[in-house]
Nucleic acid binder design. Structure first.
Length: 855
RNA sequence: GCGCGCUUAGCUCAAUGGCUAGAGCAUCUCGUUUACACCGAGAGGGUUGGGGGUUCGAGUCCCUCAGCGCGCACCA
């Protein structure tokens, strides 16, 4: 039989335990023979970096649910993968080659850049995979996927072809968000808005053949080079007479009309707006409706185009200052005002966005043949998808309601190219290049989210594969709430379109992991916690626990070393508990089943009753997706009830069978949370012949619930507590055994041991004694020790007052007819029971006080 | 502007409308023992952000105010 060593060396053990799991083959659901299944396609991290706390917390949650379901007899598939990451990876890789080799992607050329970026991603993936394993995730690595794997990307590309055939996608000129640094179009959600203090410039626009002006206000004067109208609200009396007149656009000397449009806010600025359809989303709309010319004056490098006349070639900011100078010279600059407004920036590189008109591929989200928007809204509203937390359902519905066409083409090089070929006026859309000479493929690459949005079924080999039939729709999807729109919404949209099914039954959002002060972890702040460092320092189990403590779905959580440390302490406790059990009796073994006959003493009955209760509670809480509370309840049982009370008592009245039974259940209940240490202990105690990972989850059995034992044990604890309290408040040395006398049958040995007293049961000594007693007088003893009578009386008076207050409260409740008839039966019964209990306690207290006064 | 979330012990968080509002960390006191000092025992610490309401009963539900955080839209 193996021994349990003095200390748990998690650093040495964890890799070995993981290797043992992998070798067992049970990460692969094919090796589990059952009809029931549970599937969770894991979110693929971008294959360009390192595992961070966000990943770690997500994996901890996914693995807890996965292991729970596996122990509940299901074939569990946790399918891992990596995302090629599109823009983000390209930005990272470009920076890398610039720093390391001093080259740009243009110097490498498209083909070579793609190839090297692919190799880079592959290398990072391997590294990340080794990190993911250290968290302990029980994923089926034999099924691991990459968004660019041929089988995966083929299915995703087919979706595009299908959409094209069914007219859900189109290529067209629209105003889009352009990142001049990345050199690509972006979708609306890849743009972040930052408040910045800027200036609002008031510029005089002269009316043709008149001395009058209209003053317009703008934050971006450089765009005036492309103005094709001035717009006012038709209700605005100030400008009624100007509508239809002509303005001579300053600097360009071009004639443009004054138009009326109800979208103009009369309150803002002067109420008159310069309209630049080529460089502002709202102006673009107005331009469309009024059939205005779209004059592009800013190009894709954020420089002024030839349409900008003498400003051509200037950077937008240079152009802005030059234009302001020129206007001032002409006397057309009325004034400047400070204004705080939102500036759009690229989510990845933070460069200011230029709105441009550009020819891009779009998904029509409200197409005639199939409205992605409507179908997705319907599915969410149908209630067939459980969302944790439920409040995010509303957010999703609101977002979908406002959804605009989705720009899916990018001008970056990293990622799959559009399956579209051109030859002159001809266009071909299909998976393979068309036969014949002279076809040129569309240069655009896909928005990476178009690929990851199809992840639930591309990974399973849609449409005709064993895995797809068996595991789709999946049971669970877990992600950070920061990618709610990016990912969960897109998965719902695309999966519903392609497969006709909601891709998952449960959608669980994790919150953000923050530092102790509630700040985001960031490199610039230097407050980052590297999960791998923490695993080295405290072990994977401790990190997992700290990541799921205090969490609720979608709620941010704070993490800091002391928190992880306190869970490392718990892990040590679990180890020591097991060590004690093993050492307590050479016959000690883990026990799967027990019968009532095996429960000898009060404490046996109590601990088993509590165990059954906690088993039910933990199981229910995990099913409700409330893993934080489940863990909390289990920890309290393990540390407080089992270690601090039952084991201490076990040192006196051994019941090795009960000990083995409780430990067996505890190891199983803890396994989803702390898989490594529980597997290690289970292995030692079973001579490595059994694997905890696939052990059966404990089932709570009502027959062991024993309320009477629980109450009696509570009384015992209360009495011991009272004695300890007295020792502490009178500074009685811990070494000193307090003399006591009891004339009733009580759990003498236990109380003597736990409270360090010596209890005489015969020959009551003739000295003054403090009397202690509990409810129903199950336990009563007298302490033969000099005490401060006045102090004790004061203490008892306080107790009596509290009890009287409680009695009054409960009495008035029970006298209230509306309470008795209106409240649930159990509540009324509980109130009655409480009242009796308090009355009895009060009676005892009063008696004790009377006795005390006689001293 | 619209929407969402949060506010409970010094800190981090719990508490199906119903038991004297609880844990962990931190603090203070003490420490003999067949696992554990990464430990054990005990103690202190609360007007549940303010105000109002509904209810037999409110930390919990409603209204309102304040503070913090987030999302969306607008931003000429």
């Amino acid at each position: 039989m193996k021994e349990i060593s003095k200390q748990y060396d998690f650093k040495a053990k964890e890799p070995k335990i993981y290797a043992k799991w992998e070798k067992s083959g049970f990460f692969n659901p094919d090796n589990i023979k059952t009809e029931k299944r549970y599937s969770n396609i894991l979110p693929p991290p971008n294959a360009n970096g390192e595992l961070h706390l966000g990943h770690a917390s997500g994996y901890a949650v996914m693995d807890i649910f996965g292991r729970f379901e596996r122990m509940n007899g299901k074939k569990v598939l946790l399918l891992p993968g990596k995302d090629h990451g599109g823009i983000q990876t390209q930005v990272v890789f470009e920076r890398k080659i610039k720093e390391e080799r001093g080259v740009t992607r243009h110097e490498l050329g498209r083909e070579r850049f793609y190839k090297e970026c692919y190799e880079f991603s592959n290398g990072s993936s391997k590294y990340m995979r080794s990190q993911e394993k250290r968290i302990g995730i029980s994923a089926d690595w034999s099924r691991e996927k990459f968004t660019l794997d041929p089988d995966v990307s083929r299915i995703a590309l087919e979706t595009f072809v299908k959409m094209h055939r069914e007219e859900l996608v189109y290529k067209g000129n629209r105003i889009i968000n352009w990142c001049p640094r990345c050199g690509t179009a972006l979708s609306d959600i890849e743009v972040i808005h930052k408040e910045r203090e800027g200036k609002l410039y008031y510029i005089k626009y002269p009316i043709k053949d008149s001395k009058e002006f209209i003053i317009v206000a703008t934050t971006r004067p450089e765009t005036m080079l492309g103005d094709t109208a001035v717009a006012v609200n038709p209700k605005d009396k100030r400008y009624l007479s100007f509508i239809g007149q002509t303005i001579v656009l300053p600097l360009q000397e071009k004639e443009i009309p004054v138009i009326a449009d109800r979208r103009i806010d009369m309150e803002f600025g002067t109420g008159a707006v310069k309209v630049t359809p080529a460089h502002d989303p709202l102006d673009w709309q107005i331009g469309k409706d009024h059939k205005l010319e779209e004059v592009q004056v800013i190009d894709e490098k954020a420089q002024i185009t030839a349409n900008g006349g003498k400003y051509e070639g200037l950077d937008v900011l240079e152009a802005r200052s030059k234009i302001l100078l020129d206007l001032d010279e002409l006397g057309l600059l009325e004034k400047e005002e400070v204004l705080v407004n939102n500036v759009s920036a690229c989510e990845r590189c933070k460069t200011t966005i230029e709105p441009l008109i550009s020819k891009q591929w779009f998904i029509n989200v409200d197409a005639k043949k199939y409205s992605i928007k409507k179908k997705t809204l319907e599915a969410i509203k149908s209630g067939k998808l459980n969302i944790y937390p439920a409040s995010l359902k509303k957010v999703m519905i609101q977002w979908l309601g406002n959804l605009q066409d989705w720009c899916i083409s990018r001008q970056i090089w990293w990622g799959p190219q559009f399956p579209v070929w051109y030859k002159g006026e001809e266009i071909y859309v299909g998976l393979e290049a068309p036969k014949g000479e002279g076809w040129v493929q569309d240069e655009n690459t896909f928005d990476a989210w178009f690929f990851s949005g199809q992840w639930p079924y591309t990974t399973l080999g849609y449409p005709d594969s064993k895995d797809y039939d068996e595991f789709y729709p999946t049971d669970m999807m877990i992600m950070g709430k920061d990618i709610l729109f990016f990912w969960s919404a897109r998965m719902l949209m695309l999966s519903l379109y392609r497969t006709g099914k909601i891709p998952f039954k449960n959608l669980y959002f994790t919150g953000l992991v923050r530092d102790k002060d509630g700040h985001k972890f960031s490199k610039s702040r230097g407050n980052g916690i590297d999960p791998l460092d923490m695993i080295d320092k405290f072990g994977a189990d401790a990190l997992r626990l700290s990541l799921v403590m205090d969490i609720a779905p979608g709620q941010d959580t704070r993490l800091y070393e002391e928190k992880i440390e306190s869970f490392r302490n718990f892990i040590t406790k679990l180890w020591n508990i097991s060590k004690y059990c093993k050492q307590s009796d050479e016959k000690f073994v883990l026990v799967e089943k027990i019968s009532k006959k095996d429960l000898k003493s009060l404490s046996d009955k109590w601990i088993i009753s509590e165990l059954e209760g906690v088993t039910k509670k933990v199981t229910d809480l995990i099913k409700e997706k409330n893993i934080s509370l489940a863990q909390d309840a289990l920890r309290r049982f393990t540390w407080d009830s089992f270690a601090d009370w039952y084991i201490e008592i076990n040192k006196l009245e051994k019941n090795t069978k009960v000990l083995g039974y409780v430990l067996d259940k505890i190891l199983k209940l803890w396994h989803p949370f702390t898989p490594f240490i529980t597997e290690e202990i289970y292995g030692i105690l079973n001579n490595d012949e059994k694997l905890l990972m696939v052990a059966k989850w404990p089932k709570s059995e009502n027959k062991f619930i024993d309320k009477e034992a629980e109450n009696n044990f509570a009384d015992l604890r209360e009495l011991v507590g009272k004695i300890r309290n007295i020792r502490s408040s009178y500074h009685i040395d811990q070494a000193e055994q307090i003399e006591a006398f009891a004339d009733r049958r009580i759990e003498k040995d236990i109380i003597e041991r736990l409270a360090r007293v010596r209890i005489e049961t015969e020959g009551r000594p003739k000295i003054k004694m403090l009397q202690l007693s509990t409810r129903k007088r199950n336990f009563e003893l007298n302490i033969a020790k000099l005490i401060d009578v006045a102090k004790e009386i004061a203490f008892m008076d306080k107790e009596i007052k509290i009890l009287e207050g409680l009695i009054k409260k409960n009495e008035s409740m029970l006298k209230n007819k509306r309470f008795v008839s209106g409240a649930p039966e159990e509540v009324v019964a509980a109130a009655k029971a409480r009242l009796e209990e308090y009355e009895e306690k009060l009676k005892i207290q009063k008696e004790l006080e009377k006795n005390l006064r006689r001293l």
